[in-house]
Nucleic acid binder design. Structure first.
Length: 298
DNA sequence: AACGCGTGGCT
DNA sequence: TAGCCAAGCGT
């Protein structure tokens, strides 16, 4: 398999089969793309679409979000999960205003320095919002490259420098074509070369896939320990936050006490929410989302 | 470097 | 049914 063949096939497949996702439109701002990338960190596309539209209708540019409270960001985040992302996204907007005059930066190092923006998201914004030639490597791309190029059933759990190098070698020289290829690799991993049940009969590179050629071996070695949820602090945090999100004023501690019986665990979870900037005490007996203000009396 | 961090749909 | 999983990041 040559890289041009592989990349050309996947790119052509993408141009004919890409899902019509709203952040892929022609007039989508860098800020809107950044917001989509943060929301898509560990949250499925179908749940992100409506949240993204509502978020941008309310905060069409970074300065608007920066001027609002963390509490409103947490509420708008809804049930996308990992609500620390909402707080960081607002902090990101503040940093964009302070450091970059309210415009999303186009330099990789400046993007990486923003809160909540890591290796993947920085490269995704640079490529998809600004058309730069950078390898954009997420879990889908790692899996596609591991299978099709290396012949391995799956990639490692984290992005390593070697993954960036391997993906960079697949990119066309021309920046716009490289960005399109990155989107195409991600799409292929998301809808065809999936983790559980790959649809090889619909794959544009089945005939050149190293994993397919070697008989599609199953993964060996230690499988990653599955993430538990029931009974964890995360579940308790979610329950506490659910109450605070719905509240219109300070929430008495007694009401929070009702969401979880174990005092030690509940207190630990609440303290962690405070530590993470999601929640703050109002006085010695009540709490609210950070910066929340009571509804004005009509 | 492994772990903590939400949520809901799918098999 | 109860895991398993989904465009990661920060520590």
């Amino acid at each position: 398999m040559s890289a041009p063949t592989f990349t050309t096939r996947v790119s052509r497949w993408y141009q004919e089969n890409a899902r019509d996702l709203p952040w892929r439109g022609p007039d989508v701002s860098p800020w809107a793309i950044l917001v989509s990338e943060v929301m898509l960190q560990q949250t499925p596309v179908v749940r992100v679409v409506p949240a993204w539209q509502a978020w941008l209708a309310r905060w069409p540019e970074p300065a608007a979000l920066a001027a609002d409270t963390p509490a409103e960001a947490i509420r708008m985040w809804g049930r996308l999960g990992y609500p620390r992302r909402a707080v960081r996204l607002r902090e990101c907007a503040v940093a964009i205003v302070q450091r970059h005059g309210g415009r999303v930066p186009d330099r990789l190092d400046q993007l990486l320095a923003l809160p909540g923006i890591g290796t993947y998201t920085a490269r995704a914004v640079a490529a998809f919002a600004y058309g730069q030639r950078h390898p954009v490597v997420d879990t889908n791309v790692r899996r596609v490259v591991a299978r099709a190029v290396a012949g391995e059933p799956d990639a490692g759990p984290v992005t390593r420098p070697a993954d960036l190098v391997a993906t960079e070698e697949l990119l066309p020289a021309e920046p716009a074509a490289a960005a399109l290829a990155s989107a195409a690799f991600m799409e292929l991993g998301a809808v065809v070369c999936t983790a559980r049940a790959p649809r090889c009969d619909r794959c544009p590179v089945e005939s050149v896939c190293a994993w397919r050629a070697s008989g599609q071996p199953a993964p060996t070695g230690p499988t990653r320990r599955p993430q538990r949820y029931a009974g964890t602090d995360r579940q308790v945090r979610g329950l506490l936050l659910g109450v605070l999100r719905e509240a219109t004023g300070p929430v008495p501690r007694q009401r929070l006490d009702q969401v979880w019986a174990d005092d030690v665990q509940r207190s630990r979870a609440l303290a962690a929410l405070v530590q993470d900037g999601l929640v703050e005490p109002v006085d010695d007996s009540s709490f609210r989302l950070t910066g929340d203000t009571p509804l004005p009396t009509p």
